[in-house]
Every structure is written in C-alpha cells, then in structure tokens.
Simulated scan of single mutants.
Amino acid sequence: MLNILFSAQPERWDEYKGPLNAAFATAGLQANIARDHAPEAVDYIIFAPNGPVTDFSPYTKTKAVLSLWAGVETVVDNPTLTQPLCRLVDPSLTAGMVEWVTGHTLRHHLGMDHHIRKQDGVWEERFPPLARKRPVTILGTGALGAACGQAIHALGFPVTGWSRTAKELPNIRHLHGQDGLQAALSGAEIVILLLPQTPATENILNAETLALLAPGAFIINPGRGPLIDDDALLAALDSGQVGHATLDVFRTEPLPAAHPYWAHPSVTVTPHIASTTRPDTAAQIICENISRAEAGQPLKHVVDRNRRY
C-alpha cells in the first residue's frame, strides 16, 4: 500500500479525491491518498506551491514530489527539497492554454476591442490584414508554446518561436540564444510569452526588446509576470510602441488595486485564468508517473534544478 500525501489548498481535496482514487484503482495500484499522513510514512507527495508542505526534510521515505502546477519556480530553490520534483505536463492544461491564446490573438488581430467599445453611431470601416501578413512571435516553445504555435499557424499567421536552446518545430521558424531573441522580436506584431520564470528570463521584455517590435504591437502574457519589466511596458504603451497588452499573470497576485495596469486604457487584465489544472486529467498523469516509478521506470518531466524547469 502506497501512502500518498495530497498537499494543496484544503478546498482542492474535494475536487481531487474522487479522480485520484479512480485513477489509482484503474491502474491497479493500492494507494492510501490523504491529507494527513505522517511525514516519515509518505511515499509520494502530490504538491501545489500554495499547499501546507514547505519543509520537505521530514519526508525521508518520499520517492518523488509531483506538482499539480506546470510552473515550479516557487519551489525549485527550496533547499529542503532533495527528492525528484516532477512538473505537470497535462494535455488538458495545454488545450486550455491554446484556446485562451488563440482567442486573444484573434481578438487583437481583428481589432475586436475597437468595434465592441464604439457606440457613437459612426460607421467606421476598419479592415485588418489577412493573418498571413501579421507576424506572431512566441517566446517559450515548450509544450504550451509549441501547441499554441501550431494552432496559430493553422489560422494562417507566420509564427516565429524562440527559446534559450535550439529546437526544430514543424510550421514554426525557430530561433534561440540572445541573437535569436533580437531577430525573433524584430518587427513582431503580436508577442506571446510562455517562458518559465528563471533568472535568465526575468524582464525579457524590457525597454530595449520592446523597441524591436513593430510599432503598435500587441503583447499577450499568460506565462509569468516577471517576464515583463512593468515600467518599460507602461512607457511603451504610453508612447504607442505597444498598442495593447493583455496580461494574465503578474509579479504580485492578486494584482494590487492601485496598480496602474487596472486603469490603463491599453491594458486588459485577466485574473490568472488562461488555463488551469483539471483534476480528472491531472490525476491520470500523476498516477501514470507514480506507476512508472513503482515499475522501476524513470519518472517523466523531472525538473532540472540548474535550468529551473
């Protein structure tokens, strides 16, 4: 019998208890999944960064910590976490992100905000270019960024992807490294941020890189708040270098009521809802990974502590 600790906010237990037990029963694994196991008895931890476990040192028997979140930046530097840490790669989370990113890409491309807000009776014909004339750049081409890139390409947009290391992705012009970053951003009309938060990616959009974009470009950030230098973005919005920013993530969440993003006419704030973990599919992913470990197979999606993702 495996002892599996569920360490997330208490209200999430009611959502996850059924799917987790069903997944383990289907897999034929006997597991006691609970919120109150003694640390020394725990074989695996199902973990969310806002849950109760912050000190992993008492969990001496624990074989792995499996995150319910795609991002691990808030726990990867925890000095007590010596067990393998697995991030969540869930097709449902990816699908949700694709839908959100594609929707806002089309919203900005078509100029929907202008028509929705215009109520003064003026017949003003504005025609957007065809998608093939609107270059889109995606910073971050992991599972989420690559999937969004394929969906946007399918709509006709020319897509450039960028990451720190070289990749080959179908339908996407892929660049990497510092020189590649400048080339990827130069002339981009829509920029989508889906990078992990690391020291190397913090403030990747700053005064210098924002100046590379096509005038009036759109920024869409469902990745991580610290990827953007907020002061630089506000200045670019005020000058018109950036036409609009749709932001789902922020350095401080919830976004403070006094933050200038709330009142800025060229900023859309959404409350970190671009995509979320779905209990039914997340339970299956976690069960599969634990099954692999118990069968002597390597865990999937183990975090590289040096790269921080």
Results as ranks from 00 to 15, higher is better:
Asn3Tyr: 04
Phe6Glu: 03
Ala8His: 06
Gln9Ala: 14
Trp13His: 09
Ala22Gln: 13
Ala23His: 05
Ala27Trp: 09
Ala27Asp: 12
Gln30Leu: 11
Ala48Ser: 15
Phe56Gly: 08
Lys63Gln: 11
Ala64Lys: 08
Ala64Ile: 09
Ser67Arg: 02
Leu68Pro: 07
Ser92His: 12
Met97Pro: 01
Met97Ser: 04
Met97Thr: 04
Asp113Tyr: 03
His115Phe: 15
Lys118Asn: 14
Asp120Ile: 07
Val122Ala: 15
Glu124His: 11
Pro128Leu: 04
Arg132Glu: 13
Gly140Gln: 08
Gly142Ile: 01
Gly145Ile: 05
Ala147Ile: 06
Ala151Lys: 00
His153Arg: 12
Ala154Met: 02
Pro158His: 06
Arg164Ser: 14
Lys167Ser: 06
Pro170Arg: 03
Asn171Cys: 10
Arg173Asp: 13
His174Gly: 03
His174Trp: 06
Asp179Lys: 10
Gly187Phe: 06
Leu194Met: 12
Thr198Glu: 00
Ala200Glu: 15
Ala200Thr: 12
Asn203Phe: 05
Ile204Thr: 11
Ala207Ser: 14
Ala207Leu: 04
Glu208Trp: 00
Pro215Phe: 09
Ile220Cys: 09
Ile220Glu: 08
Asp229Thr: 10
Ala232Phe: 10
Ala232Asp: 08
Asp238Phe: 00
Ser239Leu: 08
Gly243Leu: 01
His244Arg: 14
Asp248Glu: 02
Leu255Arg: 06
Ala274Lys: 00
Arg278Ile: 15
Pro279Leu: 10
Thr281Trp: 00
Ala282Asp: 03
Ile286Leu: 15
Glu294Ser: 11
Val302Met: 07
Asn306Arg: 13
